[in-house]
């Protein structure tokens, strides 16, 4: 990673000042290239893309010179010297008109063809691609692997084609990975797909490219491309997947801290201030009044229920906004409970 990029992790409008007790700031970078234009390429058809891009740039430069060169020259050469100057009577030239209609048309058709070929390659995934289901929500990404593992970051094996099937649960988002030269809108009530074939190990950013509300500009995730290999070997994608999306086993508190950063931080503060949901500061053991008038003591069972079925007991003064996270493993929930206990 060439330069550390620091941004806030997804936060809602009522963002707390950056860098408060947040456990770990997420860092995202788009790996740069030496050139002026595109970021580093990564993937089977990125080369084809970059060729198409260079082709376009040269066409662009040539046409720009053809138009602006003469314009500048004429502006000086034919600068008015007297008010009564007479000018050229030539007001049309059919052959010339045909030439500058026909040549660009032919060239444009070729450009279409270049773009279309690239598009065709990006749209049809190979049959052996691994399918990852991507759910976009305001304002986070969720990735579900074929074996049921759910993560917040997309980790992939190197040199294997991957197909993403995307859908949204609320509004339209767009899944954009500059390094792969790809983007697909994530639309509610619709499946969209994209596929790619990473050829380099990388740690690069996923950005949301379709405006989706106040958290739009911090709706990041990460794409980590890891070596592909034996499930027993440390540091491979298969090993990571076998450990349920963990590089190694973490202590419950460390796991809870990590999950807080991924899942809870945007709505639950640690400094006692009210956000979308109640703050975690001093939450454990507290007695909360609920919207229906009853009260509940915050204990392990209540926290677990609130994670799995958030709508069951809503604390007074808050909306029923939290999505269910029933997909979390017991280990994760245990970690989050440990983490909340620590927030005194």
């Amino acid at each position: 990673m060439s330069q550390g990029a620091t941004t806030k992790t997804p936060t809602a409008t009522t963002a707390q000042p950056a860098g408060t007790a947040a456990p770990q700031e997420a860092q995202y970078t788009i790996q740069p290239d030496e050139g002026y234009w595109l970021p580093r390429q990564n993937g089977a058809y990125s080369e084809q893309f970059d060729w198409a891009w260079s082709f376009y740039i040269w066409v662009c430069v040539i046409f720009f010179v053809i138009v602006i060169g003469p314009m500048t020259y004429f502006a000086f050469k034919y600068k008015r010297k007297s008010e009564t100057e007479k000018t050229s009577p030539i007001d049309h030239h059919l052959q010339l008109e045909i030439v500058w209609t026909a040549i660009p048309t032919a060239l444009l058709m070729y450009m279409f063809w270049v773009g279309f070929k690239l598009y065709a390659d990006t749209q049809i995934a190979p049959n052996d691609a691994m399918t990852v289901q991507v759910t976009g929500a305001m304002y986070n990404w969720k990735f579900q692997y074929p074996d049921g593992t759910v993560t917040q970051e997309l980790e992939l094996p190197k040199d294997r084609p991957v197909k993403l099937v995307l859908s949204s649960v609320d509004t339209i988002h767009s899944f954009f990975v500059p390094e792969f030269r790809l983007k697909a809108d994530v639309v509610p009530n619709l499946y969209t797909t994209m596929w790619f074939h990473p050829t380099k190990e990388t740690d690069t950013a996923v950005q949301c490219a379709e405006y989706c509300g106040n958290g739009h500009s911090t709706m990041y995730s990460r794409v980590l491309v890891m070596p592909s290999g034996d499930a027993g070997a440390e540091g491979t994608f298969e090993n990571w997947l076998a450990n349920g999306g963990e590089k190694s086993s973490l202590s419950p508190l460390a796991l809870g801290t990590k999950k807080y950063g991924q899942l809870c931080k945007s709505c639950h503060t640690l400094d006692g201030s009210k956000s979308v949901g109640p703050s975690f500061k001093g939450l454990f053991g507290k007695t909360e009044s609920l919207a229906d008038g009853s009260t509940v003591t915050v204990d392990e069972n209540y926290i677990k229920e609130s994670i799995v079925n958030p709508g069951a007991k809503i604390v007074q003064g808050y909306q029923n906004q939290m999505p269910s996270m029933a997909y979390l493993k017991d280990k994760d929930i245990e970690g989050i409970i440990t983490f909340i206990k620590e927030q005194k």
Partner: peptide, 9 residues
């Protein structure tokens, strides 16, 4: 189309 928009998969 997803059977259920809020949980497409």
């Amino acid at each position: 189309r997803p059977a259920q928009m809020t949980d497409p998969f």
